[in-house]
C-alpha cells in the first residue's frame, strides 16, 4: 500500500470489480425485455429473413455483408503491406523450442484444436462463433508452433505462399458468392432472394449463403493473421536489440 505501484494495482482491482458488476447486470437482464427499435426488428425478423439461428452472424453476413467484405479486405491489405515491408528480412532459423514434453504433447493436441476451430467456423450460423473467431483460433495454433517448436518449424512446414493462396482463395470465394446475387438479378451479396435455400432454422444447411461466407472469412482470417505474425517476427531478428528478461 505504500508505493504508488500498489495503489495503481488496487485501482485496477477496483476497476475490474466494477466492470464485473456491470457485466453481471448486463447478463442478468431477461431476454426481449426493454429491447426496442432496430434491435427488436433484427431479433424478431432474423429467422424469417435469413434462417440463421445466430443473429450476429446474420447481421454480419447478410444485412451488412458488403461491410464485412470491406472489413475482411482491411485484414488482406494489412497483410499485404506488412509482408511487403518485411520482405527483405529473413527468419533466423532456430529449432530451440520448449522441452520435448511440451513438443510431443502439443503434437497430440493440435488435431483436436484444429477440429475445434473448424467446428466454430462450420457452426457459425447456429452457435456463438463464426469465421472471424474460428480463424483466430487457427492462427493461434500456428503462433504456438513458433513458440513451441522454434521459428524454423513453421517456415519449413507451411510456406508463406500456401498461406497467401489460402487467404486469396478465401477472398475470392467471398466475392464469387456475392456475384451470384448479381447474376440472378438482385444486388451484390443477395442471400435468400437470390435463390439460396433458407432451410429450417437450427439445421446445418440453413441460412443460405451465411455458412459459405463463414468458411471464406475463416480461411481469410486464419491465414492472414498467421502471415501477419510471421512477418512481424522478422522484426525481432535485429541482433542488437535482444536483451535478457527481468523478473
Amino acid at each position: 500500500m505504500k508505493s504508488p505501484r500498489n495503489l495503481q494495482r488496487l485501482g485496477a482491482l477496483a476497476l475490474s470489480l466494477a466492470l464485473g458488476w456491470w457485466l453481471w447486470q448486463g447478463v442478468t437482464i431477461s431476454p426481449f425485455q426493454g429491447i426496442t427499435g432496430p434491435a427488436a426488428r433484427y431479433i424478431h425478423g432474423t429467422a424469417r429473413d435469413t434462417g440463421a439461428a445466430n443473429v450476429v452472424a446474420a447481421i454480419l453476413f447478410d444485412y451488412r455483408g458488403f461491410d464485412t467484405l470491406g472489413e475482411a479486405s482491411v485484414i488482406y491489405t494489412t497483410v499485404c503491406g506488412v509482408a511487403l515491408l518485411f520482405a527483405k528480412r529473413r527468419y533466423r532459423r532456430s529449432s530451440h523450442g520448449l522441452s520435448f514434453i511440451v513438443k510431443r504433447s502439443m503434437a497430440l493436441l493440435v488435431p483436436f484444436i484444429l477440429l475445434y476451430a473448424s467446428s466454430i467456423i462450420v457452426m457459425g450460423h447456429l452457435s456463438p462463433g463464426g469465421g472471424f473467431q474460428g480463424g483466430s483460433v487457427m492462427a493461434t495454433v500456428t503462433i504456438l508452433f513458433c513458440v513451441i517448436y522454434g521459428s524454423s518449424f513453421e517456415a519449413a512446414r507451411v510456406s508463406p505462399k500456401v498461406k497467401e493462396t489460402i487467404e486469396s482463395s478465401g477472398a475470392l470465394l467471398f466475392v464469387l458468392i456475392g456475384l451470384v446475387g448479381l447474376v440472378t438479378g438482385g444486388a451484390f451479396l443477395t442471400n435468400i432472394a437470390a435463390g439460396f435455400p433458407r432451410g429450417t432454422m437450427g439445421q446445418l444447411f440453413s441460412g443460405g449463403t451465411i455458412p459459405l461466407l463463414n468458411i471464406a472469412v475463416g480461411m481469410k482470417v486464419g491465414a492472414g493473421l498467421s502471415t501477419l505474425f510471421y512477418s512481424m517476427v522478422k522484426i525481432l531478428e535485429d541482433p542488437t536489440e535482444s536483451s535478457p528478461p527481468e523478473v
Partner: peptide
Amino acid sequence: AFLLATNPLASHAIARACYHHGI
C-alpha cells in the same frame, strides 16, 4: 477433457522455464 489436456503443458513449461531462468 480439454482442461486436463492443456493444463499439464502449461505447468510443466513454466516450472522448467523458472528453473532455467535461475529461480
